[in-house]
Design a protein around this nucleic acid. Structure first.
Lengths: 153, 153
DNA sequence: ATTGAAATCACTCATGG
DNA sequence: CCATGAGTGATTTCAAT
């Protein structure tokens, strides 16, 4: 149905590193005529390999210097708390990611805040005030060792 | 020196949602002449607000259906293990993120793999074989509730 | 900071091999 | 899948207000 050849992988890799590369330049890099390049781009988007393009901002520069991970445990007695929690957390702009996990807790939340003072407010007013939240553990990030959004191909 | 006005914020928001929007279209949306738009774009990049642009791929589609978070504890007796660990982990393509955290463990690693079989190999051959790694705890993701790379402005 | 005009560049779409 | 050319639209640069 939809398998990727070597050239497709090259294209996706280049686009992950520079999402604004022009069709002509990209075609030249992978050794394809520009018109064939356009075809592949359209196909890769239509088949769902490429979900979109976005600018990558510097969190520090826009005043979001604090990165925090929070482990959240829910009260298991009422199962629809899971839905409520999920839908509430999706609306919070400070929450960049939220994943339901298997293991010692229920959700892992990744959030960016201005500083610890704002985080304290966020934790008590937002996270802890959601229904069914039993317990949270916070892990402030000391150093971001690696953070690319580049998937291996 | 470098503060953001309302229009800058609009621009950054639009670019986070569509990194391939044309200068003309973006100018129209925020109500600016195209040439002024170009100026702002250049300034926002030069000042470091915009670090770059990238394509967002679908992990499932390219065969990376398993998302795992791993808590890593290091042996604290030899401090340069931290550097060794960090530099080794930066080279692993499966590792999308790695953060040094404050709290009950030392590093939080986010990795995407094909499946559990590949993860088992990755855990034993890569993570556990790094010098100084004392203990790891793995949390496979059951459901990705939220995962945008969009920073609030 | 905006406007306008001109030159360059890139993309698309048609044809074809 | 590749090549070519015409037509369209975008970007950049320059000037001027």
């Amino acid at each position: 149905m939809a398998s990727l050849d070597r050239i497709d992988r090259r294209i996706l890799m280049e686009l992950q590193q520079d999402g604004r590369i022009t069709n002509a330049e990209l075609a030249q890099r992978v050794g394809l005529p520009p018109t064939s390049m356009s075809d592949r781009m359209r196909r890769l988007q239509k088949q769902g390999y490429i979900k979109g393009f976005k600018a990558v901002l510097d969190p520090e520069q826009i005043g979001l210097g604090l990165l925090v991970f929070i482990e959240v445990s829910l009260d298991k007695t009422t199962p629809d708390n899971f839905q409520k929690f999920a839908s509430a957390v999706r609306k919070q702009p400070e929450v960049l990611e939220c994943h339901m996990v298997a293991g010692g807790f229920d959700y892992l939340v990744k959030a960016r805040l201005h500083d610890m003072a704002r985080y304290r407010v966020f934790l008590s007013e937002v996270l802890l005030s959601l229904p069914g939240v039993k317990e949270t553990r916070s892990y402030p990030v000391i150093e971001e060792v690696k953070d690319e959004g580049i998937l291996p191909l």
